[in-house]
Design a protein around this nucleic acid. Structure first.
Lengths: 168, 168
DNA sequence: CTGAACTTTCAAAATTATCTGAAATTATTT
DNA sequence: AAATAATTTCAGATAATTTTGAAAGTTCAG
């Protein structure tokens, strides 16, 4: 397997994984492409490598920047914008965890909070069972939330951050 | 908010969450419906509650059973099949973790293994960088895999399993 | 200020995922 | 074994998402 074949392979696999993670195939592919590229790439480079349109590249690169895992790089003397991916896999994982927590866990916690304001006859067994299920979901979600929070915080902390680095 | 309004609300929110997790909106809604239902439901019950077709209910219920979070229940003297959701939120979480590990983590590990068989000039700095990135991805993925594995195994172990129960 | 180089936007088109419903199949009862 | 009831399948319809590409917008050197 040559370098290019291997890259192609990985980009493909990453794209497939993306879809089962609620990320569009193309966005995942752009990410993989930048991840395995030794140098920052321009919009045109990406268009050519993945055979997709300019608008498509622009949208997906912007989304990846919103996720905090791709950066814009300006080269002195160059008019064009270059893009590069965060290469530290651990940082990518943290960043994704952080964003998903914000975008998914927090909304569901809010929704659970809202439905638990149900004001109904607590002696009704159905109401009681519903309240219990919601309570359990809330506990689970907030446990998950807190665990993620700790990991992220620890990572960002100067001491635990460098401590963790020893193991990766 | 009445009980029915609250249920409706939760089903809706669960459906939205589903889509950002690579699960179809309807599948997540069927799951939520069964989760908050105090009794097992028939295909027709689900069709009516969510206003979806028979075929759609059948497919989604089957998928949920594949995920191991919904069970078929046969009532004596009844011709129809009934369905009920696993109510233990922790078990649901474990089951989902287990399945996602199998369906997503393992394939990506295999793909990474494959691309690391690249046979090329290791002195080429591009090849070296690629090999390094893949190596890091592999480490990250297998760490995640092992961590999940431990949690799942611990949960299934008679001792740690009951130990964990104390905290939830 | 002008115009070339580059980026962004967005309506329409293409693609992909999901759903329907009726026919085929399977299971149960009489 | 035939009738009845329930479940499953899947081709076509529908809906949702993604992509394109050209126009509008922006930036900047001269």
């Amino acid at each position: 397997m040559t370098l290019d074949e291997a890259k192609q392979h990985l980009i493909q696999a990453w794209g497939t994984l993306g879809s089962s993670w609620g990320v569009s195939r193309t966005m995942a592919q752009v990410h993989a492409l930048l991840l395995v590229s030794p140098v920052a790439m321009t919009t045109e480079d990406i268009m050519e490598a993945l055979q997709i349109s300019r608008g498509n590249v622009n949208m997906n690169v912007r989304d990846l920047m919103d996720w905090g895992i791709v950066r814009k790089v300006l080269k002195p003397g160059e008019r064009k914008e270059f893009f590069e991916a965060e290469k530290d896999v651990w940082k990518i994982g943290m960043q994704v965890a952080k964003e998903r927590k914000k975008r998914e866990l927090e909304p569901i916690l809010r929704a659970l909070e809202q439905v638990s304001t149900i004001e109904a006859d607590i002696t009704d067994p159905d109401v009681k069972q519903f309240a219990e299920t919601v309570e359990n979901l809330k506990k689970f979600a907030s446990n998950t939330d807190k665990s993620l929070e700790s990991i992220i915080k620890a990572e960002e902390n100067w001491f635990w951050g460098s401590f963790f680095k020893l193991f990766r």
